[in-house]
């Protein structure tokens, strides 16, 4: 294994960090992110900010409509709207 494969760019580190928020990064990717994070301040700041955002979203119990739910509301509303226009 080439040692250079362990070193990634800042952009790639940010991409892996995003995937980590959704548990979609592999162990290998997380290792590479960890190495980059150990010395790169930009990556450190990005990881911190990104983790904080995930924490806030989880804490907020945020909800939104599913596509079909919004579609049903929209359909009903548009029928009524048509009567007003």
């Amino acid at each position: 294994m080439k040692i250079s494969t362990l070193f990634i760019s800042c952009e790639e580190a940010k991409h892996i960090c995003d995937k980590t928020q959704y548990q979609e990064a592999t162990s290998w990717e997380r290792l590479k992110l960890g190495i980059r994070r150990s010395w790169c301040r930009i990556t450190q700041a990005y990881v911190k900010k990104n983790n904080k955002l995930t924490e806030l979203v989880e804490k907020s119990d945020l909800n939104c409509l599913k596509k079909e739910e919004r579609h049903n509301i929209k359909k009903q509303f548009e029928e009524e709207l048509a009567k007003h226009q």
Binding site: N63, C64, R70, F77, L81
Partner: peptide, 19 residues
């Protein structure tokens, strides 16, 4: 402008309500 209500406010109102 009711034409924008669903796209602009439905998620906000839904989140407000479900909580």
């Amino acid at each position: 402008n009711p034409n924008n209500w669903i796209s602009s406010y439905s998620d906000y109102l839904f989140n407000y309500t479900i909580s």
